[in-house]
Design a protein around this nucleic acid. Structure first.
Lengths: 161, 161
DNA sequence: GATATTGCGGATCTATTTAGTCCGAGATAT
DNA sequence: ATATCTCGGACTAAATAGATCCGCAATATC
């Protein structure tokens, strides 16, 4: 059970975008250099957030990414599931109905007890992440952090390297 | 984020073993045929539970696996982590300290806010699974289930197929 | 209106993990 | 004592995720 390594990238990128002024954007190349990440791969991952409606992207010179809605309306769960999908890590393949010990269909009308408990755990995980928005994260950063992020991020010029 | 398919196998196998009489055992071959699973591969996975101290194995003719302690003292979390490991699905690689936007070390004494929230979610997941024991699972099965499981499972003779 | 910059999607290649198989060491009932 | 049955770990193949590259469409700037 492992989340893609890009999950960390996108959580941090989204946090950075949340610190920009309204209307301001940051390109994939800027974000990549800001965090020292492989630019092409990061760009591909950012697209997943756009497809999920969390970010909006503008093309052309001085284009880039911005949040598609207020930071308080974007949760960590939405970002994680945009990257990794929303499926539960435990997949019930109904082995209780296979083999010599197969249960009769009438006993399988209810969900398997084990699958139910695993689903409970997944629900607890999702609830925890759904309770944290990007605005909550920003509130925990030190005083001058947004200004610092903005100036460092937007100062990265294209064509470097 | 995906758990191995064998997680389901082992949860069900442990549940079956919990239904045996004290001292009774079931071999990997019996369990495999009971659930129609590839026997050698299942045997390999069962060893992980032995290494974790959840099952005890006896070799020789009429040997096999049994629970290493009472069903009420074995939780779903212990089984899942024996199969998949206990590590969190989210791994913080401290990208906040890399690249042009790297934070100064004095601001990184505390854990990254995002890593802390992801750890909270993992803790909620573990707590949910740790709250369910094999005895709890057995309590939800229909009336005659243990007797049925015992008779079907132990009736499987070696050398078949 | 030409150009450079940027996001977007597809095709491709590699590496890691997972799935599955095999054979040998050890223990026990006969 | 022996033959058989068991676990245990080493080994091989398939699947999945990670990562990269290239061409296309769109837009602000010159």
């Amino acid at each position: 059970m492992k989340l893609p390594g890009s999950t960390e990238w996108l959580l941090h990128c989204a946090t950075s975008l949340a610190q920009l002024e309204p209307g301001e954007t940051a390109s994939a190349a800027q974000l990549a250099e800001y965090y020292d990440l492989p630019a092409p791969y990061l760009a591909k991952q950012l697209q997943a957030l756009v497809r999920s409606g969390l970010l909006s992207a503008t093309t052309g010179p001085r284009g880039g990414f911005r949040l598609a809605r207020a930071a308080s309306e974007i949760t960590l769960l939405q970002i994680v599931e945009a990257v990794d999908g929303a499926q539960s890590p435990y997949e019930c393949r109904e082995i209780r109905q296979q083999g010599r010990g197969a249960l009769p269909p009438e006993e399988c009308r209810r969900i398997c007890v084990l699958a139910a408990r695993m689903a409970d755990a997944h629900r607890a995980w999702r609830k925890s992440l759904a309770g944290v928005s990007l605005a909550d994260v920003l509130a925990e950063l030190p005083e001058g952090a947004p200004a610092r992020t903005r100036s460092l991020l937007t100062a990265i010029t294209p064509q470097r390297r």
